[in-house]
Design a protein around this nucleic acid. Structure first.
Lengths: 135, 135
DNA sequence: CTTGACTCCGTAGTATGGTACGGTCTTTAT
DNA sequence: ATAAAGACCGTACCATACTACGGAGTCAAG
């Protein structure tokens, strides 16, 4: 108990076994301890971590960025100042994404109301909603 | 005037010329009219559309999904009902993304406060903040 | 009226993020 | 005790989204 095989972790996290081995090679998850047989033994936390990776990927973060985000933790090797600066940079990335998504949502909502017959649409509201933006 | 070369569009949209030709092949942007020489002539709207594609990509939408979003417009070929249904599905995707980003942001903010010396952090707040979630 | 920057096209190559294969060893359920 | 299911490994393959190449034609500034 308190230790899962790779297949269990994969099932719980909703990914394939090969994906977990891939993430291990890529340094996104720590190498777990092994049994004498060589089988990997994961703590339950591994599931949480893999689910996090999955979500972050859906949000447009690359594995490289995710690795960076995951490495943001307090340790003796990095200064707090350094962590703060990097975390703040990620926060601002995230805020930008939220802002753009909010605009897209408003545009789509406008489209649905137009479809309810409330407004005649001359141009594409999806494109209009994002006009005049700097990336 | 009112018509741009592919290079101009690329510059204004912040992508390469080859990317635009690629998007055209993939059906993400309409085929523009040509001069007798064969040169593409883009309306200024093309820039807006390409910038939209760029942003949507950053937010984790695939080109396939972006093509779908961009095809959501009122025309004689699709019923309003159909558009409404598809737009609402996209809206709910977007809301989910916003929700997850908001959680990530809160987690990172917590991390920065911890770094300001306010709280001692025992476990990783980034992972904790997303615990117990279903995708 | 030349010359350098830009366009055309098809095809090939690259980076990212997996996914599959296949042969061998381990675990587990009957 | 045995067989099916699952794990091990390296390597190869795949889809997505570009990016580069090369040879030829076009445009526009001096």
């Amino acid at each position: 108990m308190g230790s899962l095989t790779i297949g269990k972790v994969a099932g719980l996290a909703g990914v394939g076994v090969e994906t977990i081995r891939f993430y291990e090679r890529e340094g996104l998850i720590p190498k777990p301890p092994r049994k004498e047989s060589g089988y990997r033994q994961y703590p339950e936390e591994a599931v949480v971590r893999i689910r996090f990776i999955k979500r972050a990927k859906d949000l447009g973060f690359s594995l490289k960025e995710i690795r960076e985000i995951l490495s943001l933790r307090i340790s003796s090797e990095v200064t707090c100042e350094d962590i703060r600066v990097r975390a703040e940079a990620k926060i601002s990335d995230i805020e930008k994404k939220i802002g753009t998504l909010t605009k897209m949502k408003r545009a789509l909502t406008k489209l649905t109301s137009a479809c309810m017959g409330e407004v005649p649409v001359s141009r594409c509201p999806i494109l209009e909603a994002l006009e005049g933006e700097e990336s």
